[in-house]
């Protein structure tokens, strides 16, 4: 009996740094429970910032940082946070992190800071952040929470990057500011030119792309809403 319990106690902390369960924390939100395409959270910013790749990338990095860090901080404090004010505590932590991100951008990437301006601040209201804090960080250990945060934020990031790719390509004829349309047109001689689609620069374009991504994904995974 006694040997059994000791074995169990030794086994528990020995869980691999990237065990199957932990890998699943990261990989699950990428496709199977993607915050945007399955849970349909964080749509607002997915529409707003995705007209071009570069700001979208900065936005993605910022969200990854904020979600992972706030998950970590809340998870560390989870046993001391008074239940009755937990939402406010979460909000305070998230708001602080977001402000730090925005200050850092202002100091080191002023152009991007100008371009994203309000949307960095609006990460505070991104449902993904609060959603993960409530659903995971409050009940799990710090390391797991960080992985979970990374997973969700990466799931969010790859979708907005994909949307931005198509919107910038079709809307402005470029990718990361490189004029793709112009170079393609250049191959076919002077009289050949490709028209950009103005719809793609408006939020409507984002809805269409997002809808198509959700459609393709659900056809492949066979996901049905309950």
């Amino acid at each position: 009996m006694s040997t059994e319990t000791t074995i169990a106690e030794v086994k528990k902390p020995a869980e691999a740094l990237l065990s199957k369960r932990r890998k699943k924390l990261v990989t699950d939100p990428l496709v199977d429970s993607n915050p945007i395409t399955i849970q349909v959270l964080g749509i607002c910013s997915a529409l707003a910032v995705t007209t071009q790749m570069q700001p979208t990338l900065i936005m993605a990095i910022s969200v990854i940082f904020v979600v992972a860090m706030s998950n970590f901080v809340i998870s560390v404090m989870r046993n001391t946070i008074p239940t009755r004010v937990r939402i406010i505590v979460q909000l305070a932590v998230v708001a602080t992190l977001v402000t730090v991100v925005s200050e850092i951008l202002k100091a080191f990437a002023y152009d991007m800071y100008k371009e994203l301006s309000v949307f960095i601040g609006l990460i505070i209201t991104n449902c993904i952040v609060m959603g993960r804090l409530e659903a995971f960080a409050l009940g799990n250990k710090p390391y797991d929470s960080v992985l979970d945060g990374l997973g969700s934020a990466l799931g969010y990031s790859w979708i907005i990057l994909a949307v931005a790719f198509f919107r910038e390509l079709f809307g402005s004829g470029s990718v990361f500011g490189l004029p793709i349309y112009d170079s393609i047109a250049g191959l076919f001689g002077e009289n050949f030119s490709l028209a950009t689609n103005g719809l793609m620069v408006t939020p409507v374009g984002a809805f269409i792309i997002l809808g198509l991504i959700i459609w393709v994904q659900r056809t492949k995974t066979g996901y049905v809403e309950h």
């Binding site: 001391t80 008074p82 505590v89 602080t96 730090v100 200050e103 850092i104 080191f108 002023y110």
Partner: peptide, 30 residues
């Protein structure tokens, strides 16, 4: 609850003002 909130506010406040102090000159330059 009140103590917790006060401590949290002070810590986060210090963190924010610290960041803004440290990055201030860089931001003004930018």
């Amino acid at each position: 609850i009140i103590t917790f909130s006060i401590i949290l506010t002070v810590i986060l406040g210090l963190l924010l003002s610290g960041t803004s102090q440290v990055l201030g000159p860089l931001q003004r330059k930018a």
